[in-house]
């Protein structure tokens, strides 16, 4: 199997879907000749032309609004938001239009729309190029929220997202775009939206993460294996709908749970995982459910030392794992 970076896997998924289905098109800021700010669409303009790789104005509300309209018309738009930080102007289109259309039309109108957005910090991007905004969207029934952690899943999940009849918000860990490499199966395959993946089985405690933090958790788990602590790492992959069964099964085995995410701690995705465990796995718990996340400050700081203070990293994760294992 060929090894590639996460961004190459994203590009390959779009390339294959554009070739497979004439209804698929890409729109976003600089996605055309420029190939996108992260080069996700590099070469696609030359291959598919300006009718299907469409540069948009600097207006996220418009990008998603056009996507919703095109999807209702029967096309399969892939809307690229340059940074998740800039998705907020499109919030109304996503939450009020895309998410509710099927429900409010009593099942008559579908919005088969994909919104791709690079998210996450640790790239010295400061306040407006580092945000993690998944919790806002994972709260909205009618959307699917997906965050891959490796190239194989990124390609397979993005292809599933394009083919899904519902609006899918697809967040990509931008720090991992070129950092995370992995093998990708040759030929046609998809990864289903929904199921989580136990990426490292273990006995002593369960760690739940997604995207960049999942990558860090695997590293920390590797460190702890050398100390005799057997950590199970679960890659949530799809944040909504949430794979409750996988979460419960893991904790019923280990009795301990840590949720790691780089969004602000309070009201973040980990709160939901903790609530599911308290509600449905209470009698399996051998320790308090712990969350490791970014502090509750308004944004990722630009100053490098402060950014390090803000971001969870393998060392901080390993320390949290050790503490929970010793409980």
């Amino acid at each position: 199997m060929p090894e590639m970076t996460l961004i190459e896997a994203v590009r390959q998924a779009m390339d294959e879907e554009l070739a497979r289905d004439d209804r698929v098109f890409v729109t976003g800021e600089d996605v055309g000749r420029r190939g996108g700010v992260f080069r996700a669409t590099l070469g696609l303009f030359e291959k598919y032309g300006p009718g299907r790789i469409i540069d948009s104005p600097l207006a996220e509300l418009s990008i998603v609004g056009i996507g919703v309209g095109a999807a209702l018309y029967g096309l399969r738009p892939i809307c690229e938001i340059q940074f998740a930080d800039f998705i907020h102007p499109a919030f109304n289109q996503i939450v009020n239009e895309a998410a509710k259309m099927y429900y409010r039309s009593n099942g008559e109108w579908l919005v088969p729309l994909v919104i791709r957005a690079p998210y996450g910090g640790g790239i010295s991007g400061g306040l407006y190029h580092s945000q993690s905004v998944e919790a806002f969207f994972a709260h909205v029934p009618g959307l699917k929220v997906v965050i891959p952690s490796n190239p194989r899943d990124a390609k397979g999940l993005l292809k599933s997202a394009v083919r899904d009849p519902n609006p899918v918000v697809f967040f990509e860990p931008k720090k991992g775009y070129r950092l995370i490499k992995g093998e990708v199966p040759e030929g046609e395959y998809t990864v289903p939206i929904g199921p989580a993946n136990v990426s490292r089985p273990g006995r002593d405690l369960s760690v739940f993460a997604y995207g960049m933090m999942h990558y860090y958790c695997l590293k920390a788990a590797g460190t702890l294996a050398g100390e005799g602590i057997d950590v199970e790492v679960v890659d949530l992959r799809t944040l909504y709908p949430v794979d409750k069964a996988a979460i419960l099964e893991s904790v019923r085995k280990t009795g301990k749970a840590l949720v790691v995410y780089e969004d602000n701690l309070t009201m973040g995705y980990g709160a939901e995982v903790a609530a599911i465990l308290a509600d449905e796995a209470f009698t399996s718990l051998d320790a308090p459910v712990k969350r490791l996340a970014a502090p509750d400050v308004p944004a990722v700081p630009f100053s490098h030392p402060f950014q390090e203070w803000f971001m969870p990293n393998p060392d901080k994760i390993a320390a949290a794992m050790r503490e929970l294992a010793a409980y």
Binding site: F282, T283, S284, L285, D286, A287
Partner: peptide, 15 residues
């Protein structure tokens, strides 16, 4: 002397 203090008993241990 009747009982040593067992400290916190987690739900799974109790079960």
């Amino acid at each position: 002397q009747r009982q040593r203090d067992l400290g916190f008993i987690s739900p799974v241990v109790a079960k």
